[in-house]
Structures are given as C-alpha cells and as structure tokens.
Amino acid sequence: MKIKAEDEKKLVFDILTKWGLNKENATIVADATLDADLKGFTSHGLGRFPQYIRGIEHQTININADIKIEKETEAIALINGNLTFGQVSAYKAMKIAIKKAKKLGIAAVGTHNSNHFGVTGFYSDLALKESLIGITIANTEPAIAPLGGKTPVLGTNPIAISIPSEKTYIATDMATASSARGKLLEAQRKGHEISEGIGLDKNGIPTTDPTEALKGSILPFGGHKGYALAFMIEILTGPLVGAGYGTGVCGTADTSVKCTKGDLFIAIDPDKFVGKDIFEKETEKFVEEIRETTPNTVVPGDIESKKVSAHKDTGLQIDSKLHKTLTEICEKLDLNFNDYLCEK
C-alpha cells in the first residue's frame, strides 16, 4: 500500500482539522510529518502520527493551545508550549530564532511544556531555507543507561544541523543513541528485529528484540562519545529551558502522560560573519573538495536528498498494521483512509 506525498499531507491535515485544530497549525504538523517520511525517517513520520491522536484523546496534547513567550531578550526567548503540538511549538520557536538572528547574527530559543515534534531536522531546515545555519537539539524520555549501567537515565537526545550552501543541501539529523527510539517502535510494530549493538534488555544483556530493548536500554553511539553528547544535550534542553531532565522526562513516547521534554533552537546568520555569499561559496568549495578527493562519497544530506526525490516519484509505503490503525482513526472522523491511497 502506498500514498503520494501530497495525499499524506492532506490526510494529516484533514484528520487534525476534523479534531478541531486550526488550519495554520494543522499545516505545520502535516508538513513536519511529510518531511520525515520523504527523508526516509519513517519512524517519525506517518508511523508516529497515531501517537499524537492518542495524545489528543488523553488531553496531553491541547489542540486549542498556543505558545506563550515567558522570557525574552533581543537574542533569546523562553517559550511555554502550553501542551500544544510539539511541531507547532518547535516551528514557532525556530521562526522566532530566525527573526532574531537576522537582526543580531545569532539567537537561541528554548521551549518547555510542549510535545514530541517529529523529526529534528525539519526545524534546522527552516533556518537553512532563509540562508541561516540552523541547530536543533531536544531531550526525550530515558532510553540510554549511563556508561557501565543498565538503567536508562538519558534520552536518545537528537541533534540536527543544517547549513546553507550555493548548490548542495547540507544537513545532519541524528540521535545520540545508536538508534532513535522511534526506529525501535517501528521495528516492534512491523515485527522486525533490530541490528546487534543497538539495545540491551532489562538485565543489561545485548538483544535484537526491539520490545526487550525498549524495556531495557539503547546503547549510545560511539560509546563514551555518544554518551557524553547525550549528557550535554540533556542539560541544554532540560535545566537551561525549564524542562524535565533524566528520569524526569516523560511523554515523548507514552502520550497518556504529560510531556516534560525540552528543546533548544539556534539560528546563526553567516551574513553577520564573513557575509552570506562568501560563506555559501566557500562551503560549496569544501563540498567539491570532499567529492573530488573521495570518489563516490556522500556529504551529510545527500542520502536524504535522494530519498526525497525518490519518494516524491514513487509514493510512500504504508505497512499493514499502520494501515489498520489509520483506517480506525479515519473511521471515527467519517473519513475513508483508502481514498488517500494511490496503491491499495
């Protein structure tokens, strides 16, 4: 079963507006959902969408809420998401950071009291689209055990960086764990095993069973290096922005409870440094050097760019369990999920 990109966006929009979300915010959530799937991050796209519907049902996502700026300076803002959709809070936070950075050269906006926002790179890309460097980090419910331990304390804590260049899409978006939790949830849904070296069961024994790894812990990438990066992000998106941290973070996977995660969005304007044109030209020269000296290599963003092009042409795959769940969601709203599919 497949769905075309424009129909996936319409599906998400139609479901959310049926629930009562305003059109502006429904469009933001739909764009973020589609962005994840087009780039190949299916664990954070339509496959994650039913989680948000459960959040609405449990009232841990407030469809009528909007963000509140609690503190603000020329270069900084602290936002209370008021339990709105994480995508809405994150989108508006990065837009504020972009506006401030265009004036001052750099800006940072933190958020708390929000929700899971999908794929991290969607927000760093917002800055890139306006010729700014974008950086997004977030924490999540505990999934990584401290080095030498087996009890999860840190989240998979993603980081995304997007950099403007003359021609090339340059971006990285990754968890600080060996795998994002969403990929384990997706493997669990599909009945797939995970690769070795990703997870430990509750007894600290390596496992390829995603269910056991979700009960246990996910290993940090690169051993102590991934652990250290996850640790630092935990602080920058917890204590710094007034959000939960460590075992105090919940609600990013289980939407039956209030979400206590935090996020930080940074925008940097190259025009205030060496100048926009010089920066983008020199960045592109570096990309060319990489490609010339290392044939057939890729730069960060190449894989995602290819997947976006391919998925726009071929459509996006829907597995049978996701099809069943989305069908049930649509039926409750007098929508027919099959009407959105291009291949049944």
Rank of each mutant, 00 (worst) to 15 (best):
M1K: 11
E6P: 01
E8G: 02
K10C: 03
F13S: 03
G20A: 05
A30N: 00
D35F: 15
A36H: 02
G40N: 08
S43V: 05
H44Q: 14
I53Q: 00
Q59D: 12
A65I: 05
D66E: 14
K68P: 01
I69M: 06
G81Y: 04
L83M: 14
L83E: 13
L83N: 15
S89G: 14
K95E: 15
I96M: 15
A97N: 01
A101C: 06
A108H: 08
G118I: 10
V119E: 04
T120I: 12
T120F: 03
A127C: 05
I135M: 11
N139D: 07
N139K: 06
A145L: 00
L147A: 08
T151A: 12
V153D: 02
T156E: 02
I161C: 10
P164Y: 09
S165N: 02
Y169H: 13
A171C: 13
S179A: 10
G182L: 07
L185A: 06
K190C: 09
K190I: 08
H192A: 07
S195R: 14
S195Q: 15
G197M: 09
G199A: 04
L200M: 03
K202V: 10
T207D: 04
T208W: 02
T208M: 05
P210D: 09
T211D: 10
A213G: 00
L214D: 04
K215V: 06
G216V: 04
G216N: 02
F221Y: 13
K225A: 03
K225C: 00
F231L: 15
M232T: 13
I235S: 07
P239E: 10
L240T: 10
Y245Q: 14
T247N: 14
T247M: 12
V249Y: 05
G251K: 07
D254W: 03
T255K: 09
C259E: 06
K261H: 11
K261S: 15
I266S: 06
A267K: 12
A267T: 03
I268M: 04
D269N: 09
F279N: 01
R291M: 01
T297Y: 09
V298A: 11
V298Y: 13
D302S: 06
K306W: 13
S309P: 02
D313S: 12
Q317L: 13
K321F: 12
K321N: 12
L322G: 08
H323V: 03
T327K: 11
E328H: 11
E331I: 12
F337Y: 03
D339Q: 13
Y340D: 01
C342N: 08
E343T: 09
E343P: 04
